[in-house]
Design a protein around this nucleic acid. Structure first.
Lengths: 211, 211
DNA sequence: GTTGAAATTAGTACGAA
DNA sequence: TTCGTACTAATTTCAAC
């Protein structure tokens, strides 16, 4: 039931701007880099890996937590082992003016792992974990369908989760190696034709107001 | 670059079946419940919260880790603070027989936080974090478009991440409260019409073989 | 922001229930 | 298996620099 930070694609605050609080320097970033890989590392070991003193590491660690740059520490669990081996994505079309109700209902659905409001054909995407396909069907038809705010849904199943990185950082960008296709790069010939961007549906501008 | 467990919606192993390793009992689940909320809790405090001895907690903690039920511990980071305030979902249509190449290219893209292979209109969904919208555009047109395995893409932006739960457990299901709509429940009248399930695209059956 | 010492806590080993 | 205790090693806190 954790409300997480708004991304605000254009609307709220400049992206890239570090919040009102702490100014994050290179050392802070390095700390985050270590912590996202190993959330249980001791602060002493962290200090060593980052190359700062223990006291400094404690100060920064606490500052990052207090500031909210680190939201929480969590254990990644193997859902297949715990009996929730089926994952589905449900794309939801929400009746305008009923966002508030939609969000309230979401809070009552603990089997929902993730929910994001998106541009494009649908309004929201929710990810659920279930023990079998029938349960997904029941969830969609019995629970979601009974929410007046839900106008329509479209469900797809996840066949394989190829990767999940423990939270991306800007420093990752530098590690990116562009695909080497000499001929294409030389001519600047990028096949734009096969790409498609989908903007927000009509009426979505009022999202924040009634959400 | 972490390969995560397969979900296998029907293909591999029964869902709900606890793997070859450890049999997870109620105490294991309770441990996971605590650990997903607070990944940095000490084993002593964990033992107390779960109601078992310290020694037992150590044994079970180690067993869960060794068994793979706990995959890793990680820090949840506020992406807005770290300068990656823009999140996008890119739905990718992959050329059949080129899954292996597609996966290889994904490994070289650190800005990709999540990738799942899905049923439905598209073949895969990837989630990326960027500092601005232009970077998403560059990523899609310059990097993804240059991968021969990518036939087409469709990009949507995430306007708001309403919730992210630190990994769902079966016990969460019991907390689910169905929507109370007396009239509808009495008559069993569920508006199935507004729901849609989308199966795998043609040729996706060979997914595992060339992936 | 750093170092080093004291106090506290974590992790291990082992015998008993 | 699980618990309780004792022992050892490590971490956190706090001080002075």
């Amino acid at each position: 039931m954790s409300e997480i930070s708004r991304n605000g694609a254009g609307a709220s605050g400049q992206p890239g701007r570090i919040g009102i609080g702490l100014e994050l320097d290179a050392v802070h970033m390095k700390i985050l880099e270590v912590l996202r890989e190993n959330g249980r590392i001791s602060v002493s070991a962290l200090a060593e890996r980052v190359g700062i003193s223990r006291a400094n590491a404690y100060t920064r660690f606490e500052a990052l937590r207090a500031d909210g740059a680190i939201k929480r520490f969590t254990a990644e669990i193997d859902h297949v082992r715990t009996g929730l081996g089926i994952t589905a994505l449900i794309f939801v079309t929400v009746r305008q003016q009923m966002w508030k109700q939609f969000r309230a209902e979401l809070a009552r659905m603990p089997e929902v792992e993730y929910c994001a409001i998106t541009t494009g054909q649908h309004d929201a995407m929710i990810q659920v974990r279930m023990s079998d396909v029938a349960e997904v069907h029941a969830m969609v038809t019995d629970r979601l369908a009974n929410i007046p705010a839900v106008k329509a849904t479209e469900t797809v199943f996840i066949l394989d989760e190829v990767l999940r990185r423990p939270y991306v950082l800007p420093s990752d960008r530098d590690k990116a190696r562009p695909v080497r296709r000499a001929a294409q790069e030389a001519s600047g010939d990028v096949p734009l034709g096969k790409m498609r961007f989908v903007g927000a549906a009509e009426g979505r501008a009022a999202l924040r107001k009634d959400g």
